[in-house]
Measured scan of single mutants.
Amino acid sequence: QLNLPENTDDWTKEDVNQWLESHKIDQKHREILTEQDVNGAVLKWLKKEHLVDMGITHGPAIQIEELFKELRK
């Protein structure tokens, strides 16, 4: 059970990391997002292209984008 703020805009980069870990996103990809200071407010704007530009491969980038879309519903 994750204990994250209800509003994703309030998520810290550590919260984002924890959420991605719960969805089995590889540590190396989570570390990239942490290094790039991606918090919840930033995550909602990220598209696959942004994630790929940061060095995340296409498969996980699509997965992260789709997971966040599902979360926002």
Rank of each mutant, 00 (worst) to 15 (best):
Q1K: 12
L2M: 10
N3E: 03
N3F: 04
L4S: 06
L4H: 05
P5C: 03
P5E: 10
E6W: 02
T8Y: 11
T8V: 11
T8G: 07
D10S: 09
D10R: 07
W11E: 01
W11A: 00
W11M: 09
T12A: 07
T12M: 03
T12G: 05
T12H: 04
T12V: 02
K13M: 07
E14V: 06
E14C: 02
E14Y: 04
D15S: 03
D15H: 04
V16P: 01
Q18Y: 10
W19H: 04
W19R: 00
L20V: 02
L20G: 00
E21C: 09
E21F: 05
E21S: 09
E21P: 01
S22I: 05
S22D: 03
H23R: 11
H23P: 00
H23F: 12
H23Y: 08
H23G: 01
K24H: 11
K24S: 10
I25R: 00
I25D: 01
D26N: 10
Q27C: 10
Q27Y: 13
Q27T: 06
K28I: 12
K28L: 11
H29I: 12
H29C: 13
H29L: 13
R30I: 11
R30E: 01
E31M: 10
E31L: 06
E31K: 07
I32C: 11
I32A: 08
T34W: 05
T34L: 07
T34C: 05
E35D: 07
E35R: 10
E35A: 08
Q36C: 06
Q36L: 13
Q36E: 09
Q36A: 13
D37P: 07
V38F: 01
N39L: 00
N39H: 08
N39V: 01
G40P: 06
G40D: 01
G40R: 01
V42L: 14
V42K: 15
V42A: 15
V42D: 15
V42E: 15
L43R: 02
L43M: 09
L43S: 11
L43P: 02
K44N: 12
K44Q: 13
K44I: 07
W45I: 14
W45T: 15
W45D: 15
W45V: 14
L46I: 08
L51E: 02
L51A: 04
V52M: 13
V52E: 15
V52F: 14
D53E: 10
D53T: 10
M54K: 13
M54H: 02
M54I: 13
M54L: 12
P60K: 15
P60M: 15
A61Q: 04
A61M: 06
A61W: 00
A61D: 03
L67D: 14
L67Y: 12
K69E: 14
K69R: 11
K69T: 14
K69D: 14
E70G: 11
E70M: 07
